[in-house]
Design a protein around this nucleic acid. Structure first.
Length: 574
RNA sequence: GGGCCUGUAGCCUAGACUGGAUAGGGCGACAGCCUCCUAAGCUGUAGGCCGCGGGUUCGAAUCCCGCCAGGCCCGCCA
């Protein structure tokens, strides 16, 4: 148990006892007061009407009943609140000891057995990843890291659509199109090289019914498990998928398993889903096709029919998705899916089907809205895109210019390139993860590449500063006296470091990775203020100097750990 | 036509689930701070009917209802 958890429990117990002895009703809900008013606050407003007394009077009565002790230094009634002030020395002492002992696992919650599968990215392998959906892998991977920090056993999955129209179009294009008619890509990366075939084939399909027919034949072949069709499509998308994997690795994202859709068609589980869905009372037939009537599940709109079987007997994406989720459900106690907001209806349909089939657990979806361009949304089909690879390169190039400007005197080109890579990629991930997933983002180069203020270099720089102090002091062994760290900037920094486990807990429980980004920014800001106010190396009091060095090391550890959850490098120098 | 999401200073954003103390930050603007641990930093100033209107409450950016604006969806596509 981490210090703040102990404090909260102790205060809750104190208050519960006090309320009981005063014969006041109600539960204890603690709040965090504004700075300077203690660490915990108990609002008395809800008691006022019941007790027929002013909240201020109630707060005073409760405060008078409480006797400080343990973690609690002092209790004070103020404006209808009972404020609790924790013993700063004890809190500092406990926090620093814990951080210096746990090091790169400080903040991590106790490990448990619960297994969660996080599905993310799952992009059609018909072209490079583009910025419009770039939030998906970044949110997904950050959730993976966050759940691990919160003690879960986690695995990530990429659901690979090797059965659908998109890959069939790509395969047709590769087979029939003359390479000289395809516009040359800017790189020789396979996903960029092949997307032109998809785009051209898509155009032809829209113009020419016979092309559409040929593509349909491929899809039919896939659905019936025809080996030739499967091989053709696999050979078409495999290099594209490899390109996507390379892009993901570039931004520190590894996926544990790529699960192909075809697996669930081939092993008969999709057939089983169809059989069982047909037996439910919600199933109806129309023109030889089958659907579930989902109106009674709260789905509204023009069409309340969830079709799961076409009249030609082939299945649909959502049907196969149901089979996939049944399979996933056997392996984990919780499922999380990171999906674009365009998948809301499909996701709900799958959820309804899973409920009808009595499958547990039902997946929980995290939806993000698309990144659009100032002129509208991105589209691979129409070629109106900014590719993730291009954005990565721009971020690194821009970061390189910044490092060069500042450090070309002291650092080698190799060192500057390493730093630029860390900063550029960090900037990309940070800019995306710091914003709530459901907010719309309009992509603008000048914003994406802005490296000042609430941006990753600010945080990485604070970390580098801490490393620099520690390197110059060359400490081998920590010894500190917590009672000397009394400067407001020191206390603020310690309080911030103390909160880290609470933040991880909250971010994970609410599935909100952006809280970690907020936290790491605030921590860096607290460190920079400490850096300004409290000279470390030049401090003449040896005990205070040593204590500050311990605090610097603790801050360094927390910044690095929080950045690790975000998948962002923590450079030792910048 | 219907459903879901979003709306906070010139721009971007936190806080909303779980209602509470003066709505935090950042960019941009203006004014300062390097003989001192990397100034990618720090300090200060200006800038807010928290989209609009009603309701619930001792108390609403937060909950409820109705509008308005933007995004997404309503296919035997994925």
């Amino acid at each position: 148990m981490y210090p703040l958890e102990e404090c909260k429990q102790e205060i809750t117990q104190m208050l519960t006892d006090a309320l009981a002895s005063l014969q006041y009703p109600g539960d204890v809900h603690l709040e965090t007061p504004p700075p300077g008013m203690g660490q915990y606050a108990f609002p008395c407003f809800t008691l006022a009407p019941v007790m027929k007394k002013a909240p201020q009077a109630i707060a005073a009565t409760i405060a008078a009943t409480l006797r400080p002790g343990g973690w609690v230094d002092r209790v004070e009634a103020k404006g209808g609140y009972v404020n609790f002030y924790l013993n700063p020395t004890r809190l500092t002492d406990a926090t620093l000891h814990l951080i210096l002992k746990r090091k790169d696992t400080y903040g991590w919650l106790e490990a448990h057995k619960e297994h969660v599968i996080i599905e993310h990215t799952s992009a059609n392998p018909n072209g490079p990843l583009h910025v419009g959906r770039a939030r998906n892998p970044i949110i997904g991977d950050t959730l993976v890291r966050l759940f691990k920090a919160a003690g879960y056993h986690v695995s990530s999955q990429f659901y690979l659509d090797d059965m659908g129209k998109q890959v069939a179009i790509l395969a047709w294009g590769l087979k029939h199109l003359d390479p000289s008619t395809i516009p040359a890509p800017e790189t020789d990366k396979d996903d960029h090289r092949l997307v032109g075939y998809y785009q051209r084939a898509n155009e032809l399909m829209e113009q020419n019914p016979s092309v559409a027919e040929e593509i349909n034949t491929i899809i039919q072949g896939l659905e019936h498990g025809d080996p030739a069709s499967l091989t053709m499509v696999h050979n078409a998308y495999a290099p594209v998928l490899a390109g996507i994997q390379t892009s993901l690795q570039r931004i520190n994202i590894g996926v544990d398993a790529y699960v192909p859709e075809s697996r669930f068609v081939l092993d008969g589980s999709v057939d089983a889903v169809i059989r069982k869905l047909k037996q439910t009372p919600y199933c109806h037939e129309e023109d030889g096709a089958f659907y579930l009537d989902v109106e009674s599940f709260g789905i509204h709109g023009r069409n309340m029919k969830f079709f799961f079987l076409r009249k030609d007997g082939t299945t649909l994406y959502a049907t196969r998705d149901v089979a996939y989720h049944q399979w996933k459900a056997t392996q984990a106690s919780a499922l999380v899916n990171v999906l674009g907001e365009d998948h809301k209806l499909e996701s709900r349909q799958v959820e309804i089907a899973l409920t009808l089939l009595k499958t547990q657990p039902v997946p929980q979806a995290i939806f993000y809205s698309f990144v659009s361009l100032p002129g509208g949304k991105m589209s691979t089909r129409r070629g109106r895109v900014v590719y993730l690879d291009d954005l990565i390169e721009e971020c690194i190039a821009r970061a390189y210019e910044e490092v060069k400007q500042r450090r070309s005197e002291e650092l080698s080109d190799q060192q500057m390139r390493t730093i630029a890579e860390q900063v550029g990629i960090g900037a990309l991930r940070y800019n995306i993860i710091k914003v709530q997933p459901e907010k719309d983002i309009v992509f603008k180069w000048e914003e994406a590449l802005n490296f000042e203020g609430n941006a990753v270099p600010f945080i990485q720089y604070a970390h580098a500063r801490a490393c620099s102090i520690l390197a110059k002091a060359s400490v081998t062994r920590h010894s500190f006296d917590a009672s000397l760290l009394t400067h407001p900037s020191e206390m603020l920094l310690v309080e911030q470091l103390t909160r880290f486990p609470v933040v991880i807990d909250e971010a994970c429980q609410n599935r909100r990775p952006n809280l970690i980004a907020n936290y790491v920014y605030e921590t860096a800001a607290a460190f920079n203020q400490f850096y300004r106010d409290c000279p470390v190396l030049s401090e003449s009091n040896h005990v205070l100097r040593a204590s500050r060095l311990s605090l610097v090391d603790a801050a360094r550890i927390v910044l690095a750990n929080a950045l690790a959850i975000l998948g962002i490098a923590a450079p030792k120098e910048m």
